[in-house]
Design a protein around this nucleic acid. Structure first.
Lengths: 228, 228
DNA sequence: CGGACTTTGAGAACGATTGCACAAGCGGGA
DNA sequence: TCCCGCTTGTGCAATCGTTCTCAAAGTCCG
């Protein structure tokens, strides 16, 4: 029943936004939301919300809107958030450290269950409730914890090597924070977050701002009105 | 001379990839690159590279490729990286702390020149070579350092408030790490990085993997061959 | 000097995504 | 019961982005 058809990538990328907006709405004991309200909360426009949700199925009621709890359940099922995902972080430097301590993951269905680093000096140290394991132990760790998702938080030079090892160990979804291009075989998902790239994109529009025009406005900026 | 025409957003988002690839190429004292090689280094396909670069101008030589140094200069000018940008980070928690210590920014044309936090207990503490300033001092800090770019690394509830203050202080480019939708007025650029959302997207494809198919493969994964 | 080879730049086809507009469906009140 | 107002779901058109293809333009070699 997990929605027969194919869901466009652009829609998938927005489902988490709706999910978060619905969580907030549910907290306020609201029974139903309209696409209009959901759109305002998620920072997109209403037509997009309706089309996106229609890919999941006809879960709304005309004249009324969407049942918050029901829609939450459908989206969380679609996103695979009905159970927690164990996650391993490779690289316990600045960023890896911060990610390991970040509380936001657990609340959203992801739990950091293992930390790995190549530096022998770091192996064995404790961070929060976890002990850093050696990179060579990756296959064992992944197998024991049933890990499918890995986070790369190493320097750029190590990223490809680490990705290869993750894949070999059986990880099939990778989130890469290292500023490097990483290749993975078919059947493995890869997403990247690159802070420097984001800043450089901002810099592009920042520089063009003076010449005139309305600058660069994303979906969020285009949302006509504040919520409430 | 900064390239008359409008450059598509998708192209702008890839320019930093080419920039990084060119930096690596220049380090190896290579004089020219073909679109094919640049594509492999950036993890995209060659046709896209050529089309993207053609938006900047006709900077290649048929039968030869692109002059590395020249193209580097053109792209860095286009991205506004010919000078350093001063940046302020708001929120010195886990993530803000890690970002403040991250060395990768300076090397890429961005320098963290100020840290700000709302928590009186944190104001006055030193992180690296910087002293944390109070949120109320934001306008002064922004004006004194000529800051145009701000990073939000606060909890979600504070994000909108902080964004408003950044805009009031004169910041016109914002990078938001808080898991919340933020609205900014026209003329202000906003980009967001949301770790939980990235993981949820991975989770979506991870969950769909078992039913069969080749899974979810991004541009990077589709790159046919490893470089070198 | 001419031909073979390489690589760019761009036109055109194609595909994905967005936004509009509106019919269809539902609830509530007379 | 019927009508009215509200909101969804979706067909359609327009926009945006990607990929294919190939002529044009250059280098290199004999």
């Amino acid at each position: 029943m997990p929605s027969a058809g194919r869901i466009p990538e652009a829609t998938v990328a927005r489902l988490p936004l709706y999910y978060r907006a619905l969580l907030e709405t549910a907290d306020q004991h609201v029974g139903t939301v309209s696409s209009d309200r959901l759109a305002a909360l998620a920072g997109v426009n209403a037509a997009k919300v309706r089309k996106d949700l229609s890919y999941l199925g006809s879960y709304g009621t005309r004249g009324v809107g969407y049942d918050v709890e029901f829609l939450l359940h459908q989206i969380s099922r679609e996103l695979g958030l009905t159970h927690d995902w164990p996650v391993v972080i490779v690289g316990v430097g600045n960023l890896g450290h911060a990610l390991a301590n970040y509380k936001g993951f657990g609340a959203r269905g992801f739990q950091i269950v293992a930390l790995v680093d190549a530096d022998p000096a770091k192996v064995g140290t404790r961070i929060g409730e976890l002990t850093v394991a050696a990179l060579d132990d990756l296959p064992k760790v992944v197998a024991e914890c049933g890990i499918a998702i890995g986070i790369i938080a190493t320097p750029a030079v190590a990223a490809q090597e680490v990705a290869d090892r993750l894949v070999d160990a059986g990880v099939t979804s990778i989130l890469n924070f290292a500023p490097a291009v990483v290749n993975v075989p078919p059947g493995v998902s890869l997403r990247k977050v690159d802070l420097a790239i984001e800043l450089q994109i901002l810099s592009f529009y920042q520089q063009r701002r003076v010449p005139g025009g309305d600058g660069h406005r994303g979906d969020v900026a285009r949302a006509k009105e504040r919520v409430r």
